[in-house]
Design a protein around this nucleic acid. Structure first.
Lengths: 202, 202
DNA sequence: CGCTATTATGAGCCATCGCTCGCAAACGGC
DNA sequence: GCCGTTTGCGAGCGATGGCTCATAATAGCG
């Protein structure tokens, strides 16, 4: 029956207190990112992550109760970066400008580490309900909902669905571009804008 | 060093000759599909597939030289279904009708087995270059390129890029809808159309 | 029936992987 | 320097999983 239910365990086994351990935690998460983008799921083992981070496997499990918890932390580290940009964009009063700013941020985020971004999108969907991670996603969607609700954009009959659709369109296009090897944000930007604002049209 | 390079091996170890073995192969592929959609990658082991198919593990490896080869066969089985619809749609002389027909087919294909479709999209991107599988994808893209080239639709400066973008938009929206639990094609259809034709606008 | 090619079997090898646990080292306040 | 706390260590356990191979069952055919 496998190790008894890794999901149920209280989240971090030990919270880092000294500067030392904070560095360890950061090194582990970054090693996880690097292994994931270099070898994909195939090479992604906790032993490999620990070795790559230059720490022992025991240290890894002192801060992450399970492999999935580590992936969750990585997902959160990356999506939080996007959340910051999303909330900044949502603060703009012009909906069109806000969406454009957000799209540009998505493209920049994706082109920074394309393979990692794509793999984490998948993991985010796969992961057992991690409330912390879900809250980040919810806040990003809330920001988008605020953008498309601005008076300069056509009103949407079902804002929640429209928000989910826009996430799907933008994520889909940007992931595909990254996977195809595109590196020029300026070339991708107008295409995503066309799909986005084309969708929003009355 | 793991078993010596599973990718390099000549594709099927044995080709099925009698009706019996064709049924065995079909049972294995279908079992793979069911396990994937019920348990995701977590429960997807070749031993589990063989058991579910009601055949021995040895039989599985008589027809599929590796786990990835089995996944490849499953990917091909599913995308081939979509290819048929795509080529039928591309035969229509009106580009707008053709695209609409194709979108409807994508939605139907996705709603039939949502989780499976999503997982296989991911596998298709992950798999080492399997020429057979890639040819199917290329033919689907060729069909789409033909559709958007029809005179009733706005001419696209870069048809290849436009084709890839449309695939990304449609796949992204349809996957997301399936994952969110949507089951009504009629509700999804107009939204995908808006994004698609919005993208194509001059 | 006899004979060969085809198909099916499943015990088990070997590598890997997630994870534990007992212990040692480093830190920081006194 | 002393000592409790925090941090780090890594051999190794138990389980799983991809895959092999020697062998048995079955099909087709004269």
């Amino acid at each position: 029956m496998s190790p008894p239910d890794p999901q149920t365990r209280p989240v971090p086994r030990k919270a880092p207190r000294q500067a030392r351990s904070l560095a360890t935690v950061a090194a582990i998460v970054e090693a996880a990112a690097r292994i994931l983008e270099e070898a994909g799921h195939a090479g992604f083992s906790t032993n490999a992550v620990a070795e790559r981070a230059g720490v022992s496997i025991g240290s890894l499990y002192q801060y992450f109760p399970s492999k999935d918890a580590l992936i969750g932390a990585l997902v959160r580290r990356e999506t939080s970066l996007l959340l910051i940009d999303a909330e900044a964009a949502a603060a703009l009063s012009c909906g069109r400008d806000a969406l454009r700013t957000f799209i540009a941020a998505c493209i920049a985020h994706q082109f920074r580490r394309p393979k990692l971004a794509r793999l984490l999108d998948f993991e985010e969907a796969r992961l057992p309900f991690d409330p912390e991670t879900q809250r980040v996603g919810a806040r990003i969607r809330a920001s988008i909902a605020a953008m498309i609700g601005r008076p300069d954009l056509p009103p949407q009959p079902d804002p929640d669905t429209a928000t989910r659709d826009l996430v799907a369109v933008i994520k889909g296009m940007v992931d595909a571009a990254g996977q195809h090897g595109e590196t020029d944000p300026a070339a991708l930007m107008p295409r995503v804008e066309r799909a986005t604002f084309g969708y929003l049209r009355p």
